[in-house]
């Protein structure tokens, strides 16, 4: 039972793990680039959560199966229960675009910061900022 619960939900555990790793990267690391990597991991964790949330299970012949890609397959028919929910995929497509844009902005900022301070170390930069 426990194992089954885990195999059903391991993606959620991974999501949580990634969220924590990402948060740690953003808040715990001094290097700004590592912060940015943490941010990307953090966002990706949420994307995974949505994608996993879209999956559907159905029981066929006593075995538990995952839903198919949401393109109508003549063999499966049109029962929506047999397909994964397409909407979260669409949402995440949008969110990925946002994430790419954010990453782009952040990288541009890092370039400017590095030009200005010759460092990406937060502590060093903050010291130079106060001068």
């Amino acid at each position: 039972m426990i194992l089954e619960a885990f195999t059903d939900r391991y993606v959620y555990f991974m999501t949580v793990a990634l969220l924590i790793i990402g948060l740690y990267g953003m808040l715990g690391k001094r290097n700004l680039l590592k912060k940015l990597i943490g941010m990307i991991v953090f966002q990706t964790a949420v994307f995974l959560f949505f994608i996993e949330g879209a999956t559907k299970f159905f029981i066929e012949n006593g075995t538990k199966l995952r839903g198919s890609v949401p393109v109508i397959d003549p063999q499966l028919g049109t029962d929506p229960a047999l397909y994964v929910n397409p909407l979260p995929h669409v949402l995440i497509l949008t969110a990925i675009v946002v994430s790419v844009a954010t990453t782009g902005v952040a990288l541009a900022l890092l370039l400017t910061i590095h030009r200005g301070y010759q460092s990406l170390d937060e502590k060093v930069i903050l010291e130079r900022m106060r001068q």
Partner: peptide, 19 residues
Amino acid sequence: RQSAMAAFRYVVLGTIGGT
């Protein structure tokens, strides 16, 4: 350069907020 640094911190925290 100062504003770039300030903006970067805002990016990080803002993204946490948005996410």
